[in-house]
Design a protein around this nucleic acid. Structure first.
Length: 886
RNA sequence: GGGCGCGUAGCUCAGUUGGUUAGAGCGCCUGCUUCACACGCAGGAGGUCACAGGUUCGAGUCCUGUCGCGCCCACCA
């Protein structure tokens, strides 16, 4: 079998990804009317997969660790919707860029038409890439193809909420993005601290020789002022009841109103009121029945109401107005001022608060059961802290603006009558107006916020509103895995909708993973240019290495720092596995051993008289399985990754394979020795599969070829479970001592600056028989691993022995060609210093009456034991130092 | 303004309920092209766990405060 020296992920990963799909191993977990959840879904009793979605929309990398357990457990959560959407977005973005088209220049119909062409053109490549990185990619479920089943669910929910009075349409202040030309929700508005000015403007009071000075950060809105407000308790303005002021530049007379929202402490205590362009003022306007004068339009330009400023860009108008006020002597002062400016999440354009007719969901009634679900523990957050954030938002929830003026998405199922203006909300397009019978109906052109349909995902994908088998089986799911950045957007809303329409939470646990950060701990963002493109790095380091790097950094509650250094080290780990396999295969060939795995994987164990290294590695294998399973079950993926790393590299490779080298000299075919080894390696591959799926699949297939009844894939072979009967304390003890002897000898050799190639001899001294027996039994191993031949001797090392290393159990003395006295003395003195410190420490504690009386017995006992060891060591070190001095 | 979190080795980070001498990867130093792997092997240096108090027999871990940093939410003109 020809095996390359360095593991080349590019050769194997695409092949396996495709094979998993073709052979149906990654099959859909549930089907419903031809809809599948996700193309790449781990099968039953797997293990796991890591999922990286390339979020163009959010211009960052989103990492979802999908470590699915049992299908039968109903522990699945399958990210599907958004990733299919993302794949489509990737196509669209590419096409738009390549053809240099502005979305808005196409109409809705044209756009949808073009998308299919683009998909044909660019889709295959992207689909392949998505699959390669483990992302789902299901073309049937893109948002704007408006999958009929999903649309039906959306309409159903809309109508039911409307009939319950939980959806309403009204004229409200919304966040408007002048570039996207749509309303956006509060959540999609990102506030940013910006350095601006506070302009103080004089408004002359009619009939008095007096000004009211108002402060504003947005002078251009003054053209739309319809009042100025002061606090009713503010004595300075108590005389202004019934007064009016003349609005500068416009000349309109506007009233002075008295309202609590004016803060006497702020500026002069007088505030201008622009009901059409400020949320606060809008509310005040309603209270005082003020006119709304719209001076800025949907494109961010001044309207005809703005008089001479009409047609100007809003920021240009600001400059002109300030200049004109200054000319008129009405600019009292200008103050630098830091304010937070709302920007569109998507395009960073400054949001314009505008009054318009929009659809809203009243969220308070929906939030109540959703809060209760978490409070009662029916939904659990991991890490738990996130429930606080969830509550914080839920308790202060505001109504949700759901209408968007975009042209892809789910149309709002509302029709307006051309005759009488009646609004009809219905599941299907109505024939005639319910009120006047007119057939002149037009559907609302607005579409729904994408999160509206996303909120229904847990049940809409299962066939709701029909009571399907899938719905009964899979709702509620057990686990949602997601990032905190969509906690409000998606998670909270799924809970609300689930409680409302299913009467039950959509999932039991929510695992919140961190976001990926770059080396400077910055959130990845396209505008900052610090994005690590998963397609680029998977190409460079391999998918397995990228996955492992992410997992190693995935401690709950912390962000994931993804650096190339980290990926380099995980690639090294992949290569290590590869080379361990390469080594085994080479030796199998040499010994005439065919690839082999046990018939019953979970029952194999080495015999009681098996070679010590086999008994040892199987015991360690079991410990590793135990820890890995526990870590995975408690969502401590970083810990699992670390446990596996340490086991495979530092136990399996560094010790087990090294010890096995001695056996390879025997040329005896597939004996028990080989069986133990191959079965151990096979188990190790299964343990590693979740963190290195492609590599382990490749190796496992090569290993298992001979087994006719083997599962089709390592993914189907079952994750190794802890098996207490494999634990072998005696073997661990014995190999532990062997490791100690070898390490001592190596350390001593390096310290004495002895050429590692020079064979040495030495003596192992011990009072106990155990260490001596081990040294004798494993002389071959010791010679191989430390290049030292040891004699054994009962008793303590001679006082004048120079090259000495001690443990509480035994002393190791090497016969050196020349003495390195100085190096030896230095090391011993350092050791003595450390021992003295430890002894003093232990003695102090043991001399403390309160400690003895209050500390648990086992703590006291371990300290006693340690003190005895330290003291024994101290005697030896002192003797060795004396030896040198003589 | 409200909420959440962070500060541990040169760098990036672990450290589950407080309990012996605080760990890993990378980097660094020394020595090895040993017939699986230099994406490697062997050995090593490096930390008063941000600071100040407190609780405790015992604190990186719990409490209070200070300093520094980050994130989220919020209609402060």
């Amino acid at each position: 079998m020809q095996i390359e020296k360095v593991y080349e992920p590019q050769r194997f990963e695409p092949h396996w990804a495709q094979w998993w799909i073709d052979s149906g191993i990654f099959r859909a977990a549930g089907k419903s009317g031809g809809r599948v959840f996700s193309l790449v879904i781990p099968p039953p009793n797997v293990t796991g997969s890591l999922h990286i979605g390339h979020m163009l929309e959010h211009t960052e990398i989103d990492v979802t660790i999908r470590w699915h357990r049992m299908l039968g457990d109903n522990t699945l959560w399958l990210p599907g919707t958004d990733h299919a959407g993302i794949a489509t977005q990737m196509v669209v973005e590419r096409a738009l860029a390549a053809e240099n088209i502005n979305r808005r220049d196409l109409g809705r119909e044209k756009f949808e038409e073009r998308v299919w062409q683009w998909k044909a053109q660019y889709g295959d490549t992207i689909k392949r890439q998505m699959i390669r990185i483990g992302a789902s990619c299901d073309w049937s479920r893109e948002r704007f193809t408006l999958d009929p089943g999903l649309s039906r669910a959306v309409r159903e929910v809309f109508v039911r909420l409307y009939e319950k009075g939980l959806i309403y349409r009204g004229e409200y202040m919304v966040n408007w993005c002048p570039r996207c030309m749509t309303a956006i929700s509060d959540l999609e508005t990102a506030h940013q601290e910006t350095q601006g000015n506070l302009w103080h403007i004089r408004y002359p009071v009619n009939g008095q020789d007096r000004y009211l000075v108002v402060a504003t950060t947005r002078p251009e809105t003054m053209l739309g002022d319809t009042a100025v407000a002061v606090n009713p308790k503010d004595q300075r303005y108590a005389d202004l009841h019934g007064a009016t002021v003349k609005l500068p530049l416009v000349g309109r007379d506007i009233p002075v109103i008295f309202d609590d929202f004016a803060d006497p402490q702020f500026g002069t205590g007088v505030v201008k009121v622009t009901p059409a362009h400020d949320p606060n003022d809008f509310e005040a306007g309603k209270r005082h029945n003020l006119a709304k004068i719209k001076v800025i339009d949907e494109t961010g330009h001044m309207t005809a109401e703005a008089g001479v400023y009409a047609g100007l860009d809003r920021f240009e108008a600001r400059k002109r107005i300030v200049a004109d006020l200054d000319d008129l002597g009405l600019l009292d002062k200008v103050q630098p001022y830091e304010l937070s400016v709302g920007k569109c999440d998507r395009c960073k354009t400054v949001v314009e608060p505008l009054v318009s007719k929009q659809w809203f969901v009243s969220t308070k009634p929906l939030a109540k059961p959703a809060i209760e679900a978490v409070e009662s523990g029916r939904i659990q957050f991991i890490p738990e802290n996130w429930s606080k954030t969830y509550f914080e938002w839920m308790y202060n929830i505001r109504d949700w603006c759901i209408s968007r003026q975009l042209w892809w998405g789910h149309r709002i199922p509302a029709w307006y009558c051309g005759e009488c203006g009646e609004v009809t909300v219905a599941r299907e397009a109505p024939e005639a107006c319910a009120k006047c019978g007119s057939a002149k109906l037009t559907q609302d052109t607005d579409v729904l916020d994408t999160w509206f349909s996303s909120a229904l995902w847990p049940f809409s994908t299962l066939g709701w509103p029909d009571q399907t088998e899938d719905l009964k089986t899979y709702y509620p799911t057990s686990l949602l895995i997601t990032g905190f950045d969509i906690l409000f957007f998606w998670v909270a809303r799924m809970v609300m909708m689930g409680c409302e329409f299913m009467g039950e939470v959509p999932f039991r646990q929510v695992y919140i993973h961190g976001l990926v950060r770059d080396a400077e701990r910055q959130k990845m963002s396209k505008t900052k240019g610090n994005t690590i493109d998963p397609l680029v790095v998977t190409e460079k380091y391999g998918t397995d290495a990228v996955r492992m790097a992410l997992l190693m950094g995935a401690a709950p509650g912390t962000d994931i720092v993804l650096t190339e250094e980290r990926m380099e080290s995980t690639r090294a780990f992949a290569n290590k596995i590869w080379n361990a396999a390469r080594f085994l295969f080479m030796n199998m060939e040499r010994s005439g051993v065919e690839p082999w795995v046990p018939e019953h994987l979970e029952q194999y164990r080495p015999g009681a008289d098996a070679p010590i290294e086999d008994r040892w590695i199987w015991s360690r294998l079991n410990a590793c399985a135990e820890q890995a399973n526990r870590a995975i079950e408690t969502y401590r993926y970083h810990e699992a990754a670390q446990v596996l790393w340490r086991f495979f590299w530092h136990e399996f490779c560094d010790w087990y394979v090294e010890l096995k080298k001695l056996r390879f000299q025997e040329n005896s075919g597939l004996d028990e020795n080989w069986r133990n080894l191959l079965a151990a390696f096979e188990t190790a591959l299964r343990l590693l599969h979740p963190v290195m799926p492609f590599l382990t699949e490749e190796l496992w297939q090569r290993l298992a070829t001979s087994q006719p009844n083997r599962p089709k894939s390592i993914a189907l072979a079952g994750y190794p479970k802890p098996r207490p009967e494999l634990s072998d304390a005696a073997a661990e003890q014995e190999v532990g001592v062997l490791q100690e002897i070898v390490t001592l000898a190596r350390t001593l050799r390096t310290e004495m600056k002895i050429d590692p190639k020079a064979p040495l001899s030495g003596t192992l001294y011990s009072h106990g028989e155990a260490a001596l027996a081990i040294a004798r039994a494993h002389s071959g191993a010791i010679e191989r691993l430390a290049n030292v031949t040891l004699e054994s001797s009962q008793g303590a090392a001679p006082a004048n022995a120079a090259a000495i290393r001690s443990t509480p159990e035994f002393d190791l003395v090497l016969n050196l060609p020349q003495m390195q006295m100085e190096a030896q003395r230095k090391r011993l003195e350092k050791e003595k210093e450390q021992l003295d410190k430890n002894i003093a420490n232990s003695k102090r504690q043991l001399g403390d009456e309160t400690f003895l009386s209050r500390a648990p017995a086992h703590v006291v006992e371990t300290i006693r034991q340690k003190l005895a060891d330290y003291e024994a060591q101290q005697v030896k070190v002192a003797a060795a130092l004396d030896g040198i001095a003589q």
